[in-house]
Amino acid sequence: MRSLARLRCVLPLLAVLLVAAPMAALAVDDPAEMLPDPREEARAEAIGAQLRCLVCQNESIEDSSAGLARDLRKVVREHVAKGESDRQIIDWMVARYGNFIRLSPPITISTLLLWGMPLLALLVGVIAALRVFRRRSTPESAPLSEEERARLDEVRRDA
């Protein structure tokens, strides 16, 4: 029910690309939307980099030239100027658009596997490697036959 080929108008209708990098690339933006205080502007940019442009691909709203991204940039700057915390601004966005808008998903039960993956993969890898070291240092296989030894020597000589 949720939409077949949903033609969204805000998305500039771009020819489909074969390789590399999303489209809707940043045209030059309006400098008027930047905050006068460079520190506040830097903070706004950092927050914007965490928020996904809803109508483009994995771009952040800071990197996108889509109209909605520009609106959201403005909203972020207004809230920064009001002195709201990063957390408050991101929560404001999530309240409207859900977690889809966060480029870095919150840590919850359902994203535990995602955030835990670096540790999990490393753990599995280290355990497997330790098993390899332990197993191999106690020779369990039969000693090499004459032919095998000859081949091994040949291989080593070439190396």
């Binding site: 980099a49 994995n58 870095s104 998903p105 994203t111």
Partner: peptide
């Protein structure tokens, strides 16, 4: 629906 983007990949 969630998004996984640059901030996640950089950190991970």
């Amino acid at each position: 629906t969630i998004s996984v983007g640059k901030p996640f990949f950089d950190a991970a």
